[in-house]
């Protein structure tokens, strides 16, 4: 049986885009805030961590632990980063979405979209 492309879901794509955009500063709090600020949608940190865990299990992200600061009550921090397969999967997901809405009435592609 041919292997199906593993396209990330909508929320996974948001998390992956936030991680990619934040670069070296991507951890739970910054990812959550980035999504909330850009989408205007209130999300819970638990949802972000559950998604990051799923993405890591799929090999789309990796993470490293860092010591906590005073503001965190000394609690550890975990930084996330997209892997090369993660970047590929994210691009495939976005392109699949673009292809799906191609020519659908009332849902135009954003200006400058496409290759």
């Amino acid at each position: 049986m041919a292997k199906q492309p593993d396209l990330p879901g909508a929320f996974e794509q948001l998390v992956m885009l936030a991680v990619a955009g934040l670069g070296d500063g991507a951890y739970g709090m910054t990812v959550r805030r980035a999504i909330e600020e850009r989408t205007g949608r209130g999300i819970s940190l638990g949802a972000v961590y559950a998604t990051l865990d799923r993405l890591e299990a799929k090999g789309h992200t990796t993470s490293v632990a860092a010591p906590g600061s005073e503001a965190r009550g000394g609690r550890a921090k975990r930084f996330f980063r997209l892997t090369a397969p993660g970047v590929r999967a994210l691009n495939e997901g976005i392109q699949a979405m673009d292809r799906m809405r191609e020519g659908v009435a009332g849902i135009p592609r954003p200006a400058g979209a496409g290759i």
Binding site: Y49, R72, G73
Partner: peptide, 8 residues
């Protein structure tokens, strides 16, 4: 990590 993030 989650508690630390929320407190921060």
């Amino acid at each position: 990590e989650l508690i630390g993030d929320l407190l921060e």
